[in-house]
Design a protein around this nucleic acid. Structure first.
Lengths: 353, 353
DNA sequence: TCCTTCTGAGAAAACCTTTTCCCAAACCAC
DNA sequence: GTGGTTTGGGAAAAGGTTTTCTCAGAAGGA
C-alpha cells in the first residue's frame, strides 16, 4: 500500500493515454496536448488542472505515436563489429553519454563481420525509423560489412573506415606517437626503439612514421621499427632482437627507451627486460599505446601509455550526428581527435626531477 | 547508375508508404496490406501485382505504425552498469544473437551506478514501448540502481542481483569451482590452495565453499582460502604467503596446485612462481576463473580457466524474455547455468598422459 | 444595438498500418 | 427467375499524439 500523503501514480496494467487525462480533466485531447506541451491558449487554471491530472495518473506520452507523427524517433543505431571490444566500448559509452540527456536511445547492433547480419540490422533499424546511424569498429582501416552510403538518414563513422565523402572521427595516431617519442626525448632518452604490430594495420605505419619524424627532427638516431603481432609474446621476442646485439653492432647502442604499438606488447617488453636484469625505467623506459587501464596498471612498474580518448571521440560523434539530424549542415571529411599521454612510472622521470 | 537488368529500388528521399504501393497497384491500402501479409482473399494475379509493385518501390512497412497498432515494438531494453564490461559484454552478445533473428532490436543502456541515470533510461525505454527489459551487470550480488519490480512489461535478470520473485540467470560458481578442483584431483594433485578475491563478493564464498567441499569429499587436506583483491599483485603476494612457509610449517607441505578466483590473480601467481624458479605446471598447477581469453592466452604457459558461459547465459535470458513477451508463463526463480573448464597448459596433464 | 476583435477550447486531419466488417457481383442449385 | 453462397475487394476504425482550423461567446468600440 502506498502512503497517501504522496500522489500515488496508478500502476495500471495498461499505460495511461492522453484521452484518459483529457476526459478526467474535462477537456478535449487537443487541449490536453496543448496544455502539457505549453502550446495553445487557455486559462492558467485549465492548464494547471490538466497538468495535475496527468501527473496524478502518471501519464507519459507514447513515443511511438509521437514519432510516427513527428517523423523523428529519438533513436539512433550503433553499428559495430567489435564484439568484445575494448575499442568500440569506450566509443559507445561516449556516444551514449552525449545522447541520453537529449532523450535519445541507442540501438546496439553487433554485426560481427557478416554481411547478412549487417543488412539485417540496418534494415531493422531503418524500419524502426532511427534518426541516424553511427558506425564504429575495432580498427580504423577496415570497413564494416554494410553499405551505409546512400541511406536517407545521417551516418557518422567513429573509429572505423568511412565511406568516401562521409563524416568520420578517428584518433590521431601520428600525434599520439609524437607525444610518446617527444616525451622520451624530453626525459633525455636518445636511443629510442619502436616495437609495434603487423604491417597490415594502417596505424602501424602512421605511428612508425611519426616516430621517425620526431627522431629526425631532434637529430636522434632512428632505429628501424620492429613489426610483429599485437601480443605480449612479440614483446618478449622483440626485446631479444633489440638486446641480443643482432641489430646494433656495438654494445653501447642498445636502446634506452622502447615505444610500443600497444599495451600488450609493452607488457611483454617490460617483463622481458626485467627477466634480463634490466631496470624499467632506470635502464630502459617503456611507453605503450591504448592506455588499456587494466593492463597498464598491472605492469610492474605501471605503464605510461598513449590514450586515444575514445570516449571523447564517441561523444563528438554523437553530438555531430544529433546536429545533422537537426538539419544543421556539416563538412564531410575525417576529423582526427588528439590523443593524450597518461604518464605512469615506466618511462622514468626527468633527469632533474 | 544502376543496371537496368535489375529492378532498381528507388532511393526516395522519403520512405515509400503502403498507400503509394496501393495506388500504383490500383487497389486500396487494405487490399495491399493483406496481399503483402498473405492475409485476406484475392486473385493470385492481384496479390502478385501488389507484391511486385511493393518490391519495385522498395516498400518496407513502418515499424512505428505497426508497433502502435500491435502494441508490440519488437524492441527490448538492455540495462547494465558494466561500462567496460568483460562480463556484461558476452552476455549482451548472447542476448543479441538470440534476438536478432526474430527481428528484435536492443536498446543498450549503461546506467553506471547512478540512480538518476537509471530512471532516465528506464523511463525512456518505457515511453518507447519496449517489449521487455533485461538487466545485467558486473557482479552477481549487486542490484542495479533502478527499480524494475513493478513494471508492466516482463523483466529478466542476467548476471546481476534480481528482485525477489523475478526470473534470473546466473553462473553456477560453485559448480565451476568444483570443475577446477576436481580436475586437479584427477591429475593427482593433492595439496591444492585457493587464492581468491575479497570477502565482500558472494562468489568468493560460493567458490571457496565448493573448494572445501570437494577436498573434504576426496579426503584431501583443505587449506584456508586466501582472500585478497582481484589483481595480479595479490597473486604475487599470495604466492609469497603460500611458499614462504608462513602457513605450513614443514617444507613438504607446500601446494602443488593453486585454484585462483580469477585470471588476473592466476596470472600473478604464475609469474610469481616462475620468478621463484618453480615450474608451472610441473611443480605447481594453476587454474584461473573467467576464461578471459586475452589474459589466459598471454600467460606462460597458457592458463587453464573456468568459463562461465556468459554468452549462453545471455542467449537463455533473451529467449526467455521473448517467450514471456509472447505471453507464455515461466517459473520465477534463479537459474544457475553450468560453467565449463577450458583446459590449456597451466594445470598439467594426467600422470599417465 | 450592432459590428469587430479577442479568447478559450474543440473538431478533425495527419502520421501509417492492420483488421474487421461489409458489399456488390458472380455463381450455383432449384 | 429466385434465393442462397461464395468471391474479390473496399470502407472505416483503431492505435495515441500533434497541429491546424474553426467556432462560440465575451469583450470592446461606435
Amino acid at each position: 500500500m502506498a502512503s497517501d500523503t504522496q500522489p500515488t501514480p496508478v500502476s495500471a496494467k495498461t499505460p495511461v493515454t492522453l484521452r484518459e487525462v483529457a476526459t478526467l480533466a474535462g477537456v478535449s485531447v487537443a487541449t490536453a496536448s496543448k496544455a502539457l506541451n505549453g502550446q495553445g491558449r487557455m486559462t492558467a487554471e485549465t492548464r494547471e488542472r490538466i497538468r495535475e491530472t496527468a501527473q496524478r495518473l502518471g501519464f507519459r506520452p507514447n513515443s511511438l505515436a509521437q514519432s510516427l507523427l513527428r517523423r523523428r524517433s529519438f533513436t539512433v543505431g550503433l553499428l559495430t563489429n567489435d564484439t568484445y571490444g575494448r575499442f568500440s566500448l569506450p566509443v559507445m559509452s561516449g556516444i551514449s553519454d552525449a545522447l541520453v540527456d537529449k532523450g535519445v536511445s541507442v540501438f546496439l547492433c553487433n554485426v560481427e563481420d557478416d554481411q547478412r547480419l549487417g543488412q539485417l540490422h540496418v534494415d531493422a533499424m531503418l524500419d524502426k525509423r532511427v534518426d541516424g546511424i553511427i558506425a564504429t569498429g575495432k580498427r580504423i582501416d577496415r570497413h564494416l560489412p554494410v553499405d551505409l552510403a546512400n541511406l536517407r538518414i545521417p551516418v557518422i563513422y567513429a573509429f572505423t573506415q568511412p565511406d568516401p565523402g562521409a563524416i568520420a572521427f578517428v584518433s590521431d595516431d601520428a600525434g599520439g606517437a609524437r607525444l610518446a617519442v617527444e616525451h622520451f626525448c624530453r626525459l633525455g632518452r636518445c636511443r629510442i626503439a619502436h616495437v609495434t604490430g603487423p604491417a597490415s594495420f594502417a596505424v602501424v605505419h602512421a605511428r612508425a612514421q611519426a616516430y621517425r619524424d620526431v627522431l629526425t627532427e631532434k637529430g636522434l638516431p632512428v632505429m628501424v621499427p620492429l613489426l610483429g603481432s599485437w601480443s605480449e609474446a612479440w614483446g618478449h621476442e622483440a626485446v631479444k632482437q633489440l638486446f641480443d646485439g643482432k641489430l646494433s653492432k656495438s654494445g653501447g647502442e642498445k636502446p634506452d627507451a622502447v615505444f610500443c604499438g600497444n599495451d600488450q606488447i609493452a607488457r611483454g617488453v617490460i617483463d622481458a627486460l626485467r627477466e634480463r636484469g634490466l631496470d624499467v625505467p632506470d635502464d630502459v623506459g617503456v611507453i605503450g599505446f591504448d592506455n588499456w587501464q587494466i593492463v597498464a596498471e598491472a605492469t610492474r612498474p605501471p605503464l605510461t601509455s598513449v590514450d586515444m580518448n575514445l570516449a571523447a571521440l564517441g561523444r563528438e560523434a554523437g553530438l555531430t550526428l544529433l546536429s545533422l539530424v537537426g538539419g544543421e549542415p556539416a563538412q564531410p571529411g575525417i576529423r582526427k581527435l588528439p590523443c593524450r599521454l597518461v604518464v605512469r612510472q615506466s618511462c622514468g622521470r626527468p633527469p632533474g626531477g
